[in-house]
Amino acid sequence: MIRFENICRDFKVGDETVHALKDVNQHIEAGEYASIMGPSGSGKSTLLNVLGLLDTPNSGHYWLNGRDVSKLPDDDLAATRHEIIGFVFQSFHLIQRMTALENVELPMVLAGIAPAERQDRARQMLCKTGLESRMSHRPDQLSGGQRQRVAIARSIVMEPKVLLADEPTGNLDSQSGKEVLDILEELHADGLTLILVTHDPVIGQRSHLHLRMTDGIIKAERQHLQRQPEDNGDAPS
C-alpha cells in the first residue's frame, strides 16, 4: 500500500538546512494500524504530511497503491488525496460558520455530489461517530471531543483507503480522547489503514506497527500483542 524509498525532506531556514526526514525507508501495508511516536521536532508531522501528499519529498520515491506519487503535479496530488486519503488534525480544522452536517458535506461539495445524496451520506457518517443529535450544531456549540468526531466523519465520508491523524487526541481530555480513539480503531477494524501520530504511550501500545522517530530517522517495531480489551480501567466510564 505505502512504500517509502530513501525519502528525504529538508527545510531551508536562513543559511541552515534542517533535515526533517533523513533517508526514510518504510513499508506500510493496507489495513495496518500504525503509530508514529518520538520527541518534538523529530519529524513526525513532516512524515505524515508527506504520507498525505500535502508535502512532497526533496528526494526519494513514494509508492502509494503501486504508483510513484513523489513527482506528481499539483492537481494529480489533489485528486489522489481526494480519493485515497483522509485527514484528522489536532486542531480539528472545522469551518466555524458551517454546521456539523455542512462540514461533513464539504468534501462531497468539492467532488460535485448533489445535495440530497450529500446530506444522506453526511448523516450516516455523523451517526457512525455518535453525533446524530448534533448535526445542525456549529463547531462552537460542540465540545472538543464532539468536534473531533465531526472531523473524523468528514475524513471518512469520501471512503478513503488511508486515514492520517496528527495527534488527534492532543487537544482533548482523556475521556473524549478515548472516545475518539475508539472510533478510529473501529474504522480500522472495518478495514481502513490507520496511521496516527501521538505522544500518548498508551495509544502507541495499542497500535500494531510502532514507528519510533528520532531526528528524522525511523525505527520500526512490530507489536505482537493482541489488542487489549476495551475497558482497561485507566479512565472512569
Partner: peptide
Amino acid sequence: LKALGARR
C-alpha cells in the same frame, strides 16, 4: 480545502 483534495 487543499487537504480535502480541492484542485487549483
